[in-house]
Design a protein around this nucleic acid. Structure first.
Lengths: 172, 172
DNA sequence: GACAGACTATATGTCCCGCAGATTATCTGC
DNA sequence: GCAGATAATCTGCGGGACATATAGTCTGTC
């Protein structure tokens, strides 16, 4: 989780900027929580819900060479990924095939069914994202998306191995 | 933490916008994770770490009338809040005093020591937040902060009782 | 004024999930 | 060929969230 943070809608004062330390975290947590609740209902009837979608999406769009790369990208623990993939394999959405040049590793490939299921859910997820941002003007959405994206990239670059979900766990 | 989301730094394609559904979540998760790791070390030697800071900050700056309001704002479960406050009380940072007009409720008030400790940590937290945003220009920081703040407010308004930390837990 | 129902905080028990450690199989370098 | 590192898996532990139960208190009604 990590989740929400401190005290955002502070009483009054401050000219809309120069907030209380921790407010950024509260705002981030609030946005993320809103995002997740919408995301969750969008993929509710998918195996393993959000995580299942994330894994399937990453497998299709990023084609990671092995489970470790997949888990690292999603910041999912390897031991968790094991039984997470078990479910997806059982649902015939992905397959574990021996990796080409490393017999220790398994390559996760999507099944045809997996691709179709993913594309079906993607429209729902896109709608959920739009719904989340519906309060902003279109140019603001573009601004925010771009800035968050840039920020995420820089953090990603600076922090190769991020520890997964202590973040979400601590979200208020 | 909920944590990261799907596959952000997607291979190539797309003109920097119109991303893969789920990317927003991945970016949010990445930013939040980066935020938390910095936040965490900033308040590492505080009782209960991040949560402790959040609670103390909310108590000082928002002055919630009872524990329920405090927990709702931070999206912390009430049963968790109980022993969380136990630690803070033991550390002499806050006190449980009988609420003025409702003897069922306990008002959480900061001690003098609590206020000084908080202000000491606040400079560190503020530095951590600046560090997180150091990759952006100053006007971009203002833009991003404002947009996230607005978004958080709207989500907060639309979603009175948010479920806490499944968000962070599911972060990749 | 007393009683029923709702509400605050707390204690207890349970369940789930993520993490650390150990295990097996494999790759890489000497 | 052997030692050390790496990929996936399995097992056990612990923390955190939720449901339930309880004690004390408030609010409304008759």
């Amino acid at each position: 989780m990590m989740c929400g943070m401190t005290g955002a809608p502070a009483a009054a004062a401050e000219p809309t900027h120069g907030q209380i330390p921790g407010d950024l975290g509260w705002n981030l947590g609030m946005v993320l929580r809103g995002y997740q609740s919408r995301f969750e209902e969008a993929v509710a009837d998918m195996p393993e819900g959000i995580r299942g979608y994330q894994v399937l999406s990453a497998v299709v769009h990023r084609d990671p060479p092995n489970q470790q790369a997949l888990g690292a990208h999603l910041a999912i623990d390897r031991t968790v990924l094991t039984y997470l993939l078990d479910k997806l394999v059982a649902a015939r959405l992905v397959e574990r095939v021996p990796a080409a040049n490393d017999r220790r590793a398994r390559k996760i490939v999507p099944t045809g069914q997996g691709r179709t299921v993913l594309s079906r859910y993607e429209v729902r997820v896109a709608a959920a994202e739009q719904s989340l941002l519906s309060g902003l003007a279109t140019d603001e959405v573009a601004q925010l998306s771009g800035l968050i994206r840039r920020l995420a990239m820089e953090i990603h670059r600076a922090q190769p191995n991020s520890n997964p979900c202590e973040a979400m766990d601590h979200l208020p």
